[in-house]
Design a protein around this nucleic acid. Structure first.
Lengths: 131, 131, 131, 131
DNA sequence: GTGGTCTAGACCACG
DNA sequence: GTGGTCTAGACCACT
């Protein structure tokens, strides 16, 4: 479920954040669903609990989850004001990356094909009902 | 010209690499054009020459520039064998980012518009004529 | 263990890279084995930690080791895609050097003997068994 | 005749030394044959005469040529005592490079084939395929 | 004047 | 304690 690459240059907690974001975005983890506890996950992945906690804290800051003391961490519903912020950032990154790709010779056609594929793969399982 | 955020979590040299790549990709810096010398740029940005050099070295490894002792650093022509490698990496990043963007509500139409804009801004001058 | 020539024209960090490569190739350093820490080695060799780090960074780029912040540097398993690249380069160098050697009077027989010796010294331990 | 890569990381004078060595080794330049004068060559290659001179001086030190004041520079006959020295160095380099090649997966058979090809090309008339 | 190497010493991020 | 970034300042090699 969590494929962490202990050898990667990318910090473990970042890998965790990324992976969990993915699970939330693809709605494998549904809204208000409880995440595994820090200790459980730490044991499961045999990594330091502090690392898990750092990842959860980061996700909370980014608005993907919320934590309730004594109960646990839960997937939070998408929040519009946060989204517009994120959207801005993502678009900027996208422009950079698209520029680089096209500079390296990817054609607009190829990119559009990629977009359509992603659209298909997301469109299938995501209903996108905002709160 | 170079907007460095000294407080950012992102290392200065990485910001430099990114910015210079941008200038090369958009052909503000043309092939074989000389970059500002390590010392000059360091003075201009009031950062340490070693930091500039680290950025230049990284750009050289990535194939965007070449440096000659005693002469200076120059924009290098795109290299096919390196590109195919980079393409693979860039495409992967792109898929991740596009997925995230579309989850956040960016429509395929918007993306295509972005692509067309980029194409226009790059496509114009991309003759790649040697010096 | 590390015979550095501080007076040599060849940079210290390059000497280090070369020596460490040798130790990895001959499998004195096994896959996933931890290298001495930057600071430790620096103290041992009485050279600056930055110099060690530069060597380690170079080895990482060349695919011989991987470094993890907070954990250390480790020998990495050989990577095929990088290898094919390097192979091309090495073969070219080899042709040049072999030509020079044979011009200087080394016979084909001698060269073959050398090759067999190397094969013996490497071939023995090359099981590549993960720990 | 001299294909210098002004963009290469390798200093120009080193490229010159290497290329001239090659011409001497392959006997394109015969023993006691006169080399082009520093000025002529500088003009021909449109590079600084100092650079040529540095290359010639290096070749003289390595025993490949000799210079006579007021007359010019000439290819020197191979000198045994120098050769044995060089042989030692070349053999060492060769062992390193062969080790690396075999570590990267070149088989002994391939290497022997390469050796035979070189032997043929030297023995015969020298085919000189550029890298 | 150019890039490249090295040192000494400080501070940060990670686990 | 680990690697990574940055500074300040020195010296070398090349053109």
């Amino acid at each position: 479920m969590f494929e962490l690459d202990i050898r990667s240059r990318k910090p473990i907690y970042e890998q965790l954040v990324e992976r969990l974001k993915e699970l939330i975005i693809t709605e494998v983890l549904k809204i208000d669903e409880q995440l595994p506890s820090v200790r459980t996950l730490a044991q499961q992945l045999t990594i330091n609990p502090n690392t898990i906690q750092k990842a959860y804290r980061e996700l909370e800051i980014q608005g993907y989850i919320y934590s309730i003391k004594g109960k646990g961490s839960f997937v939070s519903a998408a929040n519009d004001s946060q989204n517009t912020e994120k959207l801005h950032k993502v678009k900027n990154d996208l422009i950079k990356l698209l520029s680089e790709a096209m500079y390296l010779g990817v054609t607009a056609e190829e990119l559009i094909t990629i977009i359509e594929e992603i659209q298909a793969s997301i469109g299938g399982g995501i209903e996108h009902d905002q709160n």
